[in-house]
Amino acid sequence: MNKDEMLSFYDDELNELGITLRSEIHSKGFLHKVVHCWIIAEECNEKWIYFQQRSYDKKDFPGLYDIAAAGHVDVGEEAEVAVIRETKEEIGIEIDSKKLRFVGSIREKMYLDNFDNNEICEVYLYPMENPKFELGHEVEKMVKISFGEFKKWIIEGSENIVAFSMDSKAKFILKSEEFCAHKKEYLELVIDFMGKMKLIK
């Protein structure tokens, strides 16, 4: 399902070195840019984080759970434009740029089963009230996890994560291995940012 689009790649000082196919960037471990959009909402005086389950048809990490929306930055595209585009395409959310919060640029480099993932993640957080998702073909479903549960998972290393479905509100357990891998330092930065953020009233 992943199209083999053209992407820019960079040196460690983020000087653009050229443009090549996505497949080559991943096979050779070239540094490239992606955007991540974390969606957070308030319900019953608790912060809730929304995660997507990736389509089972995806080439990479099919069926795993991940950040609400994420994707590559197109050639010549600004990161904020990319995060607005990806969030609309994947989960149908129209982002108001005035409410979008920039968390930071985070380097993630991991050797995975089928490619060398070397990314600069432009990370954003988007607060919402009662989000209504319209899922694109890349997403199976959305689930929500309380901020407290998410923090316990990342900080304490809990293997079982309590999640809730969006349709029936049913509670169920996810295992840590059912999520896409991210560096702990990255997730701790997101937790810190979320913890300091005031809830929407």
Rank of each mutant, 00 (worst) to 15 (best):
M1T: 06
N2M: 03
K3N: 03
D4G: 13
E5F: 07
M6W: 12
L7G: 02
F9S: 12
F9P: 01
Y10W: 01
Y10G: 05
E13G: 13
L14F: 14
L14D: 10
E16L: 08
R22W: 04
H26W: 00
S27H: 04
S27L: 09
K28S: 10
K33F: 07
V35C: 13
H36Y: 06
E43F: 03
C44A: 11
E46Y: 00
I49N: 05
Y50Q: 02
Q52T: 10
R54G: 00
S55Q: 04
S55F: 11
K58T: 10
D60G: 05
P62D: 05
G63A: 11
L64S: 12
Y65W: 15
D66R: 08
I67D: 02
A69H: 00
E77F: 01
V81M: 09
A82C: 10
R85I: 15
E86Q: 07
E90L: 06
I93K: 07
D96P: 07
S97D: 12
K99C: 13
L100W: 07
L100A: 00
L100V: 00
L100T: 00
F102Q: 09
V103T: 06
G104N: 11
S105C: 09
K109R: 14
L112Y: 06
L112H: 01
L112D: 00
I120Y: 03
I120G: 05
I120T: 04
E122I: 11
Y124K: 00
M128W: 07
N130W: 02
N130S: 15
P131T: 02
G136Q: 02
H137A: 14
H137K: 13
E138W: 04
E140V: 11
K141L: 15
K141V: 04
K144Q: 04
I145T: 11
E149S: 12
E149D: 13
E149F: 01
E149C: 02
K152C: 07
E156Q: 15
E159Y: 12
N160T: 02
I161W: 00
V162Q: 05
V162D: 03
A163T: 09
S165L: 12
K171N: 11
L174S: 01
L174C: 10
K175V: 09
S176Q: 06
S176F: 08
F179A: 05
F179E: 08
H182Y: 09
K184G: 05
K184P: 10
K184V: 07
E185S: 12
E185M: 07
F193R: 08
K201D: 12
